[in-house]
Nucleic acid binder design. Sequence first.
DNA 1: GGACGTCACTTGTCATGACAAGTGTCAAGC
DNA 2: GCTTGACACTTGTCATGACAAGTGACGTCC
Lengths: 253, 253
Amino acid sequence: MDLVRPAALYRQLATAIRGDIESGEYPPGSLLPSESALTERYGVSRPTVRQALAALRTEGLVTVQRGRGSFVRAAQNAPAVTLDRTITRSAGRYADPGTEWSQDEEPTAYRTTTDAITGPALGMNEGEAAFGCDRLITHRPTGTRAMVRTIVPFATAAGAELGNDPTRPQPELYAALEAAGHRLTWHETVTARTPTPDETTALRLPEGTPLLVVHRVTAGTAGPLILEETRVGTAAVAYPIVAKGRAKATARE
Amino acid sequence: MDLVRPAALYRQLATAIRGDIESGEYPPGSLLPSESALTERYGVSRPTVRQALAALRTEGLVTVQRGRGSFVRAAQNAPAVTLDRTITRSAGRYADPGTEWSQDEEPTAYRTTTDAITGPALGMNEGEAAFGCDRLITHRPTGTRAMVRTIVPFATAAGAELGNDPTRPQPELYAALEAAGHRLTWHETVTARTPTPDETTALRLPEGTPLLVVHRVTAGTAGPLILEETRVGTAAVAYPIVAKGRAKATARE
DNA sequence: GGACGTCACTTGTCATGACAAGTGTCAAGC
DNA sequence: GCTTGACACTTGTCATGACAAGTGACGTCC
């Protein structure tokens, strides 16, 4: 026989509030009862109330503003921003996708080495030398921020006569690679993780918003050339389009 | 002049522990000092220690086991599982991608209505009737679980003579649609969010792992036909491949 | 009328204390 | 040798209390 133990008070309280939010009792944007009010209404102590609210915060259901109160977050998964990363070319020139994205600060260029993720992705070992370049870009219409990191192995830079300046903008980079005789192919992998505190502040992420990490490896004739990593929050604002295609009549790769 | 205020104690403590983890002082899988040990070492109270540990837990850096202690999580973003969702066809037959995924339970079929996300995605209004079907599948080699939801609008089911049984497996569904004269095209959108408690238990997600949500809308000759939603955790195990392609010589869509 | 200070209310932070409950060890008992 | 129970240690939960700090309204003073 399975013993049934009552759930912890703060869990019950979180479930109750979550239910009230989902039922529309507390619509998006509305103000929840204050902690002291919840303390009285449910007959529990303030730490219990705060623990319940903390759970709802990490779930992304609620935001709290000091001195004001707790508010129900706007609807999740709203497809407000699309991050179309299709590489397009017209008249022999690569276009920078996403013209609504603007670059606020100067890109930061540096020397780095491949790690356990980027190395194998580029067909290299861990710890090989490469140029790195970090960009912070903003989606003007919505204010959504994203971090773009470009990893250019030394071999790629030398082969395409890029010098030691990987800071050039994306279209130029692609054009230079093609001018060096490469026929470009790309493939992307996507994952998500909880942001680090640094990323939370840099991207101005509200609590409870995971980070979407897109890795695009662009390959040429002889193998992988560069890796681009895009990090963007998935608040109520980000809903990136990543892939389009049609059924292939070929066997599985 | 900007006043500099010292960070909260629990934040400082979290930063210190995070640094020790990143520096290798506490390698992945190792046991952190107990709460009481941290209390003594840093001269703070237990709630402060617990608040710091809670932050590291939601970051996904640490897992805690009652009665045992706090452990450093294994490396994040390890590309162990790939979720290749390319639709392939050979000899006129659609293959179910991902043969390593097995289905544990019988799929749950039901009637539903489109919502604010699925409606527009299918070129319909919110609240229109559709068949729904939920599957829980498991990646045998790693034990990673995923939830797949298929939304089949009534119009699609009628047009392709699917009857009212949307529970048929994916390859059969695609074949039936093509047999009805459609030339299939798909497009995917990806986002991530914090899982609900239900999803956490159903997918057996550890703390601090966001949920990756993939929407694939498959369209035929006359517009969108079906929508498939895949939900999978992004623990140290999931690193889905979503897109492959090459530069197109056409103008931007 | 406008600037300003006060005050009530809110959440943030931290300490102390207590008990419940899961884990592993080790010694006693069979 | 094996089982079993006690025990120490761990984290989970909850209460109480206190002060810091941000917000907004309201009244006072110029």
